[in-house]
């Protein structure tokens, strides 16, 4: 078997071994740190319950990701194409990043309620800025020589945006989407912690109140698997779609 496939398996096995050793050696009570086996048992026994909550969280993440990427892309393009938008919006965006977005979670729940709306909004908010910044940056960095050539071809600004700047910015945009995929689950779960009736975050808060630490760990494990799977799936799709990178198009080699 290929070592590169074997490596993650070995790392996971190692971590579980360390975990089990800590539990065995220190004799820490199960409501502080449950053994790996009891967490596995919780996953199996509460499978239906966990799956239900995981589904809610997944929908929140997916919707947040979709909205955040769409809105971020729109504002990145608008800032690059319209000078007044850039002058007025960019300072606002930068200053808005000084507000800790997680501190907004209670306000979002107050405004949008305990349903998935407030969690989607939370995820969208934290995704919006990295996506906007990545795409705007990519759009700004088009080769000047390429723009010269397009201008001598009598291309209009919109044609240059569509045929040259946007495709050229796709690798940078993809980096923004990868960051978004990594942080979207955080937004959704923080939203659930603050106030929700369903979702993995809500399940963890309930389990915590009842000292069902093994359920907490089970929820955490599912969340981690979901986040990692989502990230790699998106990374794979982006790699397939965008085969050009800035460095491969240089003719200097």
């Amino acid at each position: 078997m290929n070592p590169s496939y074997l490596r993650p398996v070995i790392i996971c096995a190692g971590l579980v071994a360390v975990w089990q050793t800590i539990v065995s050696v220190t004799g820490v009570p199960a409501f502080i740190l449950p053994a790996p086996y009891s967490v596995l048992l919780a996953i199996v026994e509460d499978g239906g319950l966990l799956a239900g909550h995981a589904g809610v969280t997944f929908i929140e993440i997916a919707l947040g990701l979709l909205l955040g990427v769409l809105l971020g892309a729109a504002s990145g393009i608008a800032m690059s194409f319209f000078v007044p938008v850039r002058r007025w919006l960019f300072p606002v965006l930068v200053v808005s990043q000084a507000v800790p977005v997680f501190a907004l979670a209670p306000i979002l729940v107050l405004w949008l309620g305990f349903g998935i709306g407030s969690k989607v909004a939370m995820a969208t908010l934290i995704i919006f800025f990295p996506v906007t910044a990545a795409l705007y940056d990519g759009l700004r960095r088009t080769e000047p020589g390429l723009l010269d050539m397009a201008r001598t071809m009598d291309a209009g600004r919109f044609a240059i945006l569509r045929h040259v700047r946007l495709p050229m910015a796709m690798p940078a945009f993809a980096s923004g989407i990868r960051i978004a995929a990594a942080v979207a689950p955080i937004g959704a779960v923080v939203g659930e912690w603050v106030g929700a009736s369903s979702g993995l975050g809500a399940l963890m808060i309930h389990a915590n109140a009842r000292s069902e630490t093994d359920t907490m760990f089970a929820a955490l494990f599912i969340l981690a698997v979901m986040a990692v799977t989502l990230y790699f799936a998106i990374d794979l799709v982006l790699r397939r779609l965008i085969t050009w990178q800035p460095e491969t198009y240089s003719s200097d080699d």
């Binding site: 020589g145 397009a150 291309a155 209009g156 495709p167 085969t243 050009w244 491969t248």
Partner: peptide
Amino acid sequence: YMAQRDFLLPWLNVVDNATLGARLR
């Protein structure tokens, strides 16, 4: 106008690159 660097667009094949001007207009 022709520059030192070829500025071929990496996401277009040769024919599409050669006809870029018409596409842009």
